[in-house]
Design a protein around this nucleic acid. Structure first.
Lengths: 206, 206
DNA sequence: GTCTATATCCAGATAGAC
DNA sequence: GTCTATCTGGATATAGAC
């Protein structure tokens, strides 16, 4: 029963209803996955009727794809992407690693998104590839460039090494948080950050 | 219409039907996830009637849990676990890394299992923890022991470093195979193997 | 465009014959 | 123990009033 003002923002002409629906869809799909989500619940979470949902989106699959693609492209400009990346490696590298890991571990929505993306990567391979294209690839490129710009780090294969860094951090987050491993094999984030930083720096000519 | 001989094997008194059902369930659950799988299809894939399934398992959730726990405990004794782990680090480490990665990349069933495990880790946290307990933890322990036994590698934190290695390899497999990233950001496995081996060895006192 | 009401189908789970 | 047939609820998607 909330009255909605029209034309509140005119930046992209995405009607209020569409935003409501995508918001409700996000809530449900990220919690229950594709098959586990019903359009009834999406409509309810969005505060509209089911028919309205079908008026704006072709079907359940279309809504899901739109949502995931939007999330992959707009929202997550990965923790690696936002920093200046200049200065002494011993300091920059450690801060970079630390902020990337903390960013992932604290962001439960990000974890839910990754869970759904992986869980549905069999049924929706294109969505997984969108993620790789728009998030993973640029992230690798940024790390890669930093290593190339700092030859004193003495990294023979920056691209492969960038993947090692990202893999170590993402997998640590997945194990501790998404798979609820922190109760089984606990480990402070700082230990991971120290160990990875050490591994990156110990061959450097400094 | 295949006639089944009873008492063929007497090792664990798991009736033939139960094995058939678990086999069918594996086929369906690993392909479509929990919510995406119907008991009709499980029964069909198992070659039995739906009532028979319910005669041996309480409900869909019980069947799923039994299957995943069995897979987590019996089948996957992780690629790291099976080797002697003795000899010169420069050789052993590289072979260890290579065989672990190749094992994961070639085993599509393993990938499907990991996909489902992660995808359902929100709804079934205990199953995810079973995996962490029975696979991840022992794997880390083995790698950890090897590093501790070889102080010339000069690893300050073997446990954290073991996680870095595992994370790098698992994440590489996930990106290339499960998320279908090899078409987007291709990379030979050998490059990853070389880079990781180099990272592990370059600080060693050899 | 948005709603209520409904068509249609398929899901999980069980009853009862054998 | 195993089957066929069935109950019941909930799913996707739409018709038709406003």
């Amino acid at each position: 029963m909330v009255r909605i003002r029209a034309n509140e923002v005119s930046k992209e002409i995405a009607s209020d209803k569409v935003e409501q629906i995508l918001s409700g869809a996000m809530q449900e799909f990220l919690k229950h996955g594709f098959a586990g989500t019903s359009m009834d619940r999406v409509a309810q979470a969005a505060g509209v009727s089911k028919a309205t949902v079908y008026n704006h989106f072709q079907d359940k699959e279309g809504l899901f794809k739109t949502l995931i693609e939007q999330l992959a492209q707009e929202k997550f400009q990965s923790a690696f992407g936002r920093q200046p990346l200049q200065g002494e490696p011993r300091i920059v590298l450690r801060q970079l690693i630390a902020s990337a890991l903390q960013g992932m571990i604290c962001d439960e929505q990000h974890q839910a998104f990754v869970r759904v993306l992986i869980g549905e990567s069999g049924r929706f391979p294109e969505l997984a590839q969108t993620w790789v294209q728009h998030i993973m690839k640029p992230t690798i490129a940024i790390l890669c460039k930093y290593m190339t710009d700092h030859p004193e780090l003495d990294i023979p294969d920056p691209e492969a090494t960038a993947r090692i860094m990202i893999g170590a951090l993402v997998h640590f987050m997945m194990t501790q948080e998404m798979l609820h491993g922190k109760e089984i094999i606990p480990m402070e984030s700082d230990r991971m950050i120290d160990a990875l930083t050490h591994l990156m720096l110990r061959g450097a000519q400094l």
